[in-house]
Write a protein that binds this DNA or RNA. Structure first.
Lengths: 119, 119
DNA sequence: AATATTGGTCTATTGTAATAGACTATATCT
DNA sequence: AGATATAGTCTATTACAATAGACCAATATT
């Protein structure tokens, strides 16, 4: 399995870590209890599993992410496109934009990115 | 749960149905056995569950989809954007296009769609 | 009439992600 | 010294999607 493939619960935890890192592990269990309703051991189990896969590190009670949020996002995006749209970005956009309006600002941002990726 | 939320195995079945519909149910079990390695009862169980949720119909041994592939694709795309990119299409594209090149043709197609969605 | 095929149902079983309880060791505070 | 908080492990348990076995009724076939 790819290092970047995260399960739902794993992603939720990483989300909190990305937002707060470096973060003390006890502090993290408290945030998880509050935001996700997780018990302490649930958080620690999760931490351990993710550490085994080198997705994060827990050293001296300090938790740090070893993968970037953008990289995971990129991986998930590609997986969706691959699975559901045969890898085609235009196909994805056709479905996504159906019955949708974009603001001028969004459109400009996007046009710029597309240009950049075509160079 | 949304009507359009399909689990992985469900999507695989629907994929086959969308390709072949309207399709005879016995025929469908055969395709599923061949393409997915499913036993007959697995396919029928799946059919029943999906029929209960009005995602397909099985009448006189003929299976037909009640939801369009594009609608499910749209739902899944929106869910990913919502969950992982805070609903922002630019954010999604930024991640997706990272280290990626687009062909001129793709770029043009996309530009056209963006324009269309801005009108 | 016997038998094979079709078209299913209903109730398990399996696999595995998600969750947590019980327990431990160490440091800190009173 | 005893109590409390910190930092964690290890082994279940739970939840639920995925899968299938056993069984049945109605046709179609020999």
């Amino acid at each position: 399995m790819s290092k970047l493939k995260l399960f739902d619960a794993e992603y939720k935890l990483m989300d909190i870590i990305w937002e707060h890192e470096p973060i003390n592990s006890t502090e993290l269990t408290k945030i998880c209890r509050q935001k996700l309703g997780w018990k302490k051991s649930t958080t620690y189990t999760m931490i351990r599993k993710l550490a085994e896969r080198d997705i994060l590190r827990n050293e001296n009670a300090t938790v740090t992410a070893m993968v970037k949020r953008e990289d995971v996002q990129k991986y998930e995006s590609e997986a969706l496109l691959e699975d559901k749209f045969n890898g085609s970005l235009p196909a994805f956009l056709a479905a996504f934009l159906q019955d949708k309006k974009l603001s001028k600002k969004e459109a400009e941002e996007i046009q710029k990115m597309i240009e950049e990726a075509t160079k």
